[in-house]
Design a protein around this nucleic acid. Structure first.
Lengths: 305, 305
DNA sequence: ACAATTTAGTTGACTCAGTCAATCAATTGA
DNA sequence: TCAATTGATTGACTGAGTCAACTAAATTGT
């Protein structure tokens, strides 16, 4: 695509999104607030403590205008200002309890608008929209902080996600065929059907509502815990997430009194192998196989606890 | 729910992009036009011939306001209107040569703003931004023509998708627990590991690269074909896609010489049942069970071919 | 140290972008 | 054929947002 085609496409998108936001922002029109009021309330409400200059800068407002808005908000008891001790010209703005309620009401209205849009989409499409938004944001706004990475237990849909994302990845990257997907679907399915909450666990790493990594720990009997289906999405590699998940597993296995962790992998997955080696795993056996199409070196690694 | 994390992320993006567009739209402030003027000129300029109603609808303008804007543009010689021959109340708006020059000037200013942003990015990044924009647009713009619905054989990742989407749906809608996900993961996994291309098949319905429906046909032995994991995503219901997929199955089973199709479902899934009844399936047995948490009525249906 | 300059915020005065209600004219529907 | 609906215009209004002038505190340069 040529530069000018890119720019045209971006202009076109901006035109579309201007209209789109215009519709979404109708949500505020039912309230006492103007769009600018709402933006100020949003900014102060979500940051808790802001200076007026920062608001002027971030929201591109006229200082005079902001001054009047704040005066009104203070009169209505929604916000309060305290002089900045470091610079007595400046003031720190924060919301009162009442202001916080109004803020949360705005958030609810805004959420309802977005949820209404998302409801019309197919399952999975909202994830795609949000992922695309994050791409745009991270590129156009280098200051943007990534939403926090959360590690949580697995829930409905996660196992399917593990199967889908791993199958796609290994198929595209290494040409593994669908027998691989079949195998992990069976493994993951058995994990759920025989799930023993006392001795087993599934970890999902997610960021901003999007799954980006997983690992399962299953009971192999004889005091051996099996580490299975470790996977880190492309977008989250190089952050040490693999290590974090493996460490979680080890901690869990120790806590549950397992005497050994065992795992099966293939030698071409060198990043994973590095993680296992660093965690102290030892290679105990290796065999060539063609379970998934191309010839591979299957490896079994164990860690004595 | 992770839905709420998605919505939060979307709200956050909208907040960011409102500011971003605010900055970009400064480009118009150097001209004689207001933002709304510019939007009208953009819309008319790029569509050549539009009706006033269409503008009001697409740009969400007050008809009175648009009327005044057009009056001014006509007085300035930027636009002209001709009555619509089909409806003499209505008028067709188009730009004059002079209007087109102004429009192109706006395009240049807007492009310069975007180019300024893109210049700060690394090589390849603008492409990523624009690709993400297209993703968002295609999903959020209801006017955008729907890409065609395609029914194709299953491939890597599809089985995982089936598990994920069904697990999420039945968990949210009917409160089924993760044993359901485990069961379908095992069923779907065995489908792949024992796959017999001569007698079995998986159909995936997809639109614009996104899966929206599925059904599998497996060999149950004794000349019996099993229809499994029929699923239509929310976004594609009511289009007869379920019937289409079941018909595909029946055609396939006939062609392969099966003597009967059998399937297992639960009575609360009434839409699916309607499809089976219409296709000629007969209920042969029914039993209560609690395999997935809530009490359900499992049903076996068969169709003699 | 201290005048000169810059920065944070406020106030007065204004205007024009955008809204609402009423009206006319053409079309549709029962 | 007559009532209801839809497209477009006009009159009357208002309040969101702007601009310039000002105060007060902080910073800079010599």
């Amino acid at each position: 695509m040529s530069d000018s085609a890119l720019i045209d496409a971006a202009r076109d998108f901006n035109r579309f999104y201007t209209n789109f936001l215009g519709v979404l922002n109708k949500a505020y029109l039912d309230t006492q607030f103007t769009l600018t009021d709402a933006r100020v309330l949003f900014e102060v409400g979500s940051q808790e403590r802001v200076s007026a200059v920062a608001l002027v800068r971030d929201l591109h407002l006229d200082p005079a205008y902001l001054s009047r808005i704040l005066k009104r908000f203070k009169a209505e008891g929604l916000m309060e200002t305290t002089p900045d001790p470091d610079d007595r010209r400046s003031q720190i703005i924060s919301v009162t309890d009442q202001g916080r309620q109004q803020f949360q009401d705005l958030v609810r209205r805004s959420n309802a608008q977005i949820a209404g849009r998302f409801d019309k989409l197919a399952a999975g499409e909202p994830q795609n929209v949000v992922a695309a938004m994050k791409t745009i944001r991270s590129l156009l706004d280098p200051e943007a902080a990534l939403p926090p990475l959360v590690i949580r237990p697995h829930r409905s849909g996660d196992i399917g996600w593990i199967v889908e994302s791993q199958a796609k990845f290994y198929s595209e990257e290494y040409g593994w065929d669908m027998r691989f997907e079949g195998l992990i679907a069976e493994v993951a399915g058995r994990f759920l059907t025989n799930f023993d909450p006392a001795m087993e666990y599934g970890w999902i790493a997610e960021r901003g509502g999007i799954n980006i990594g997983s690992v399962l720990m299953t009971n192999g009997g004889d005091g051996i815990a099996k580490l299975r289906l470790l996977y880190i999405d492309k977008s989250a590699r190089g952050l040490g997430l693999g290590k974090t998940l493996v460490d979680e597993c080890i901690r869990f296995a120790r806590a549950k009194g397992y005497r050994q962790i065992s795992l099966w992998t293939n030698d071409i997955l060198s990043t994973a192998r590095t993680i296992y080696v660093k965690a102290g795993f030892q290679l105990v056996s290796e065999e060539k196989h063609r379970m998934f199409g191309p010839e591979l070196n299957g490896q079994t690694w164990v860690l004595d606890l």
